[in-house]
Design a protein around this nucleic acid. Structure first.
Lengths: 199, 199, 199, 199
DNA sequence: AATGAATGAGACTTCATTCAT
DNA sequence: GATGAATGAAGTCTCATTCAT
C-alpha cells in the first residue's frame, strides 16, 4: 500500500474508533455526524471524505467489531479437544457477541429494516470466513462435504437467533431472551453432529 | 363517569395501545407522532386532543404498562408461602419487568435525561403502591414499622438496579447484565430480612 | 325583532365584550379562539355559530368600538360654539381614537394587509355617518354642497393619518408619531375652512 | 480576527439587518424564520448556522439596535453644557428609544414573559455602560460615589418606565403613554440632582 | 484533505376551521 | 344551540448531505 493510501486507511480506523464509542453510547439513530466528528476531531463534512455516508460508517464499525469478536471467539475455542463440544461452544458464544456488538447499538428493528440489504452483504462475507472455519473443525469428524455441513449449522443457528430476535419484539438488543435459544441450539447441533457422524 | 368522558378515556386507551406498539418497535426517539397516529387511525394533530405532547403519551404508556406488570407480578407471587422467598421472588421478577417495560423502548440515556424529572414523579407514585404491598407482606414477619422496612428494601433494590444500568453504559435496555444484580439482590434481601426478624 | 333573534344578538354582543378584552390584551394574531371562548364561557366551536370566523369577530369588535368612540367624540364636541374649532377638535380627537381602538390591538401591518379589503367596507360605512355629521356642522358655515366639503376634510385627515402610519413603519400602534400630524391637520383644516367661508 | 471569522460576523450582521426589517414590520410573533430568510437570501435552516434560534436572533437585533440608539443618544446630549439639563435630556430621550426599539416590535406581554429572563441579562449588560456614562457626567457635579448616584437615577427612570408599560396594559408598544412619565421623570431627576449638589 | 456554508426533509407543536351529534 | 372531535397548514428546529474553496 502506498504511503498516502495507508494514511487514509489509518484515519478511517480512527474514525471507526470514535464511531464505535458514540454509536454504543447513543445508538444509531440518536448519534449525529457531529457527535462522531467531535470525538474524532474532524469536521462533520470531513467524514464524507472517508466514508460515503452515515450508514457506511455504521456498517464499517459493525464489520470491524464483528471481525474482532470472531477472532476472539475462535481463539477461545481453540483448545477444546472434543469437536462436538468445540462447535457447540462456538455457536453459543457467538450468540453473546450479538448481544455485545449489535445489541449495544440499540438498533431499532425499523432502522434495521432499512439497513438490512447492506447488512446482508456484510454478513454473507463474514459468514464465508466463519463457515470455512467451522468446516475446518468438522473435517476430522465427518466425511463428505464438510463445507456444506458447516453451512447447515450456521443456517440453523441463524434461524434460531432470528426467531429469538423477532419474538423479542422491538429492539435488536440483549432484550431478546437467548437462554431458550441456547438450549435449542445445543440440542440441534448435537443432533446434527451425531447424524453427520452416523454417516 | 358520564358517557362522553368515558368515551374519551376509552380513546386515550386505544391511543396507548398503538403507542405501546410503536414505541416498543421503534423506541422513543425514532417513533414519530405520525407513526402513532397511523396505527390508531388518527391524524397526528388529533393526538394533541388527548395528550399534551409526545412525552406525555410516552409517560402514560409506561405508566399503564408498569401498573399492569406490577399487578401481574403480585399475582405471580401470591401463592408463595414463605415470606422471605415471596419477597425475594418479587424483587427478582421486578427486575425482569424493567427489561420488558423500559428496556424494550430502547431509550437512549440521552433521551432519558430529559425525561428524567417527569419519570421521577411517575416512579414515586408507583413505588408508594409497591411499598404498601411489600409492607403488607412483611407485616407478619417483623414488628415495628413494616412500611419503613419495605421502603428500605426498595431503596436497596433500586440502588442495585441503578448501578447495573449505569454500568451497562448507554442504553437502558436489557443490555444491562442483571444476573449479577440478581445474586446481590438475593443476598442483601435475605440478610435484611433476617436482621428484621432478629429484632 | 323576534325573541330568538334578539337573544342571539345579545350573545353576539357578549362575545364581542370578551373579544375586545383579549384582542386588546394579546393583539389580533396572538389571540386564539380558545382565548375568546374561555372569557365568554363558550366552546371554541360555538363561536362559529355566531360569527363566520375569527376575522369577522375582530371586525365586529372594531366596528362596535368605533361606533362607541365616535358617539363619544360627537358628544364631546357638541358644545363647542365656533364651528371651525369644533371641526378641528373633532378631527384631532379622532386621531386619538385610532390610538385606542386600533392601536391597542397591535395589528401588524401585515395582518392589516389581509384584513384590508373587509376593513375598507367597514370604513366606508362608518365614514358615511361621520361625513353626514360633519356636513351638518358645516351647513351653517358654507354654502354649496356641505356633504362634499365634509368628504374633502375626511380625505385630508385620512391622508395625513395614513402617512403617519406608513412612516411609523410597522405597527398600526400609537407608535406612529401623531404630534406632527396634529399640527398639519390643524393647519390644513383651518385653511380649508377659511377657503370654504370665502366662497 | 481571521478572514473567515470576519466573514461570518459580517453575515451575522446582514442577518440582523434583515431581521430588524421584518421584526419591525411584523412584530416578534408574526415574524417567521422564512420571512427573515427571504429578505436575507438564506434558507430558513441556514439561519441556524449563525444563530441558535429565533429568540437569539431577536435578542441580537434588539441588542445591536439598543447600542446604536444609545450611541446616538450620547452624541445628541454631548454639547449640552448644563449637567442637570444634559442628564434630564438624556433620560427623556432615552424614553423615546424604547418606543422605537422595543415598541416597534409589538411584543405582546405574553411573548415578553418568555423572553424576559434573557432580556434581563441583556439589559444588565447595557445598563452598566450607560451607568458609567452618566456617572461621568455627574462627576463634575457631585462629590462622593458618582457611580452609585448614577445607578439611582437609572433605577428611578426604569421604575417610572415600568409603571407606564404596565399601565398601558397589553403590548409593550408605544401605546404606553409616556408624556406623564416624562413629567415625573423631569421632576424627580431635577430633585435628585439638587439633592446631590446640596451634599 | 479539510471545512465553512447551505439546504431539503422531516420532526414536534399550535391553531383556525369543520362536522356530526 | 352547543360542543367534542378531527384535521391541514404553518411554524420552530434538527440533521444528513452536498459543494465550493
Amino acid at each position: 500500500m502506498p504511503r498516502k493510501a495507508e494514511d487514509k486507511e489509518e484515519k478511517r480506523n480512527v474514525i471507526l474508533n470514535g464511531a464505535l464509542e458514540v454509536f454504543t453510547r447513543y445508538g444509531y439513530d440518536k448519534t449525529t455526524l457531529d457527535d462522531i466528528g467531535k470525538v474524532v476531531g474532524l469536521n462533520k463534512a470531513s467524514l464524507y471524505y472517508y466514508y460515503k455516508n452515515k450508514e457506511e460508517i455504521f456498517l464499517a464499525t459493525v464489520l470491524r467489531e464483528s471481525q474482532r469478536e470472531i477472532a476472539l471467539l475462535q481463539e477461545k475455542v481453540k483448545d477444546i479437544e472434543d469437536v462436538s463440544e468445540k462447535i457447540i461452544t462456538y455457536f453459543i458464544e457467538r450468540l453473546q457477541y450479538y448481544r455485545q456488538v449489535l445489541g449495544l447499538m440499540s438498533l431499532s428493528t425499523e432502522s434495521l429494516r432499512s439497513l438490512q440489504p447492506v447488512f446482508d452483504n456484510l454478513y454473507r462475507e463474514m459468514q464465508q470466513k466463519e463457515v470455512s472455519y467451522i468446516a475446518g473443525c468438522l473435517a476430522t469428524l465427518v466425511q463428505g462435504d464438510s463445507h456444506k455441513a458447516a453451512g447447515m449449522l450456521f443456517a440453523m443457528a441463524d434461524a434460531l437467533k432470528h426467531k429469538a430476535v423477532l419474538e423479542s419484539g422491538a429492539v435488536l438488543s440483549a432484550g431478546a431472551d437467548f437462554s431458550e435459544v441456547e438450549q435449542h441450539l445445543r440440542y440441534l447441533i448435537g443432533l446434527h453432529l451425531k447424524g453427520l457422524q452416523a454417516n
